[in-house]
Design a binder for these strands. Structure first.
Lengths: 250, 250
DNA sequence: CGCTTAGTTGAGTTCGTTCAACGACTGTGG
DNA sequence: CCACAGTCGTTGAACGAACTCAACTAAGCG
């Protein structure tokens, strides 16, 4: 594993944030934007495969993903790993660490990832001075909760084929909302990641994905998944989607 | 299913809240207490087995559990049910509905439950006037998230026996923190609830619980689970517990 | 008293696992 | 340039965990 991280004091100015103009995100008032610009302390860039946060650590920082894909996971002592959720542009990470004191899960990059860095000590200032942004943070936490609910339903009660279809449809829909696909609908994960998300073995995951492949819904190539028919994946899994409303991000 | 609900305009005054003196909860300032007292609109009492919130509904209310046990769940169209988490005194329910607009899961009572009722419209006032309480709400959401992470790890990667041990240890620890057991360590759930939480069939759940019973860790009786050895359940599941710090509640 | 719900148990089946081997590809060092 | 190791994906065979089906007990309730 190549673990390289570069911290730039160079900042993408929040006024020129590449995410904010997307129709997927809610607009900010000038005051909110100015506050967030001051709240931001720098940027962090990590390579694919590197660890962004480690379980047990006391990080002084909060991050918002600017670009790239990653995932949150927990491990048991004997090495069994469970991927909890995926992180993508606009997602806030490290909030749990800020609130509980110590990280309860780890975060790893799937692709090169760049992050906005915030200081957790200043979070209380945000709550004091910008109730609307405070509400946004709660909104973000509630959204994560909702997604975890869906994942639980999936792992607990769906069949292997339904689970796989759900997961790929989910990642695809998120990527679509964020306008991450330029032509090629490609999700940068390995089958091991799929297995560790769905609670299946790698072998059975492979055989399950083969079925989706045979139905012409996905194609596996270059260490990732190309989505050919996102709608049918939703039908198979019985998943209703994330909803189309705008969402906030810090 | 007997579904009875009584809404009392009668209120347990927040100053005499039976929960607040518990060492498990953080103390409030006088101002916070006064605000919450005005925020509270009444009380709701429901019988065991009745539904408190339904998926898809637009509830105008938020609730804090005052007494009793319940659970949150989601269902697939064909009836498969997944229990997401359990609700107990001090828990806030309905926040997702407030934030996303419509409930994404249902909530049902396991025992007689009484709830404090709040109006979701007034939540923004709380954010504007009481940043510390706003932070508490985020805290509560982040805590729920953390618990869901643990459940995901459990369902995804633990064996049936470990899962059962984890769940019972979890419910037991929560009950203990809330001082719900007076001598008899009894959890009011059926084996069907256990099955629907762990993602197992009722038959296999029964056989798994039998093993825990044979080891002298639990005893099943009167539609519930009596915990005989909570520590050993934690050891079997490899679960580290919830942490002992104080927590907020509204 | 019959009806319902919760829990128990056995038998046979299915789904998902582990083990094992192999091909394709990538990066590294000689 | 080739040899080598490492990762990722693929496939077959054997096994085991968890499932369904089915029958039955015990308790609670009208």
């Amino acid at each position: 594993m190549t673990t390289s991280r570069r911290i730039h004091s160079f900042k993408t100015p929040c006024e020129l944030c590449p995410l904010r103009p997307l129709p997927h995100f809610r607009e900010f008032t000038r005051e909110e934007l100015e506050f967030v610009a001051r709240f931001k302390r720098g940027e962090l860039a990590v390579d694919a495969g590197s660890t962004i946060l480690v379980e047990g650590a006391h990080s002084a920082h909060l991050f918002t993903v600017l670009a790239g894909w990653g995932f949150r996971y927990k491990m048991l002592e004997d090495g069994r790993r469970q991927i909890l959720n995926y992180i993508m542009p606009g997602d806030l990470i490290g909030l749990q660490g800020t609130i509980v004191g110590e990280m309860q899960h780890s975060v790893e990059a799937l692709s090169p990832v760049s992050l906005c860095v915030f200081e957790r000590d200043r979070l209380m200032t945000l709550y004091n001075k910008h109730p609307s942004l405070a509400f946004d943070i709660t909104w973000i936490a509630a959204r994560e909760e909702r997604i975890l609910d869906e994942h639980l339903l999936s792992i607990g009660r769906r069949t292997a084929l339904e689970r796989a279809a759900y997961l790929i449809a989910f990642l695809f829909e998120r990527g679509r909302q964020l306008e991450l696909f330029n032509g090629r609908k490609f999700i940068p994960i390995t089958q091991q990641h799929i297995a560790d998300t769905l609670g299946l073995s790698i072998v059975h995951t492979n055989k399950t994905l083969k079925k989706l492949n045979e139905r012409g819904l996905i194609r596996w190539q270059e260490r990732g998944c190309e989505v050919l028919n996102g709608e049918e994946l939703k039908v198979i899994s019985g998943w209703e989607g994330l909803g189309e409303g705008k969402r906030p991000f810090i």
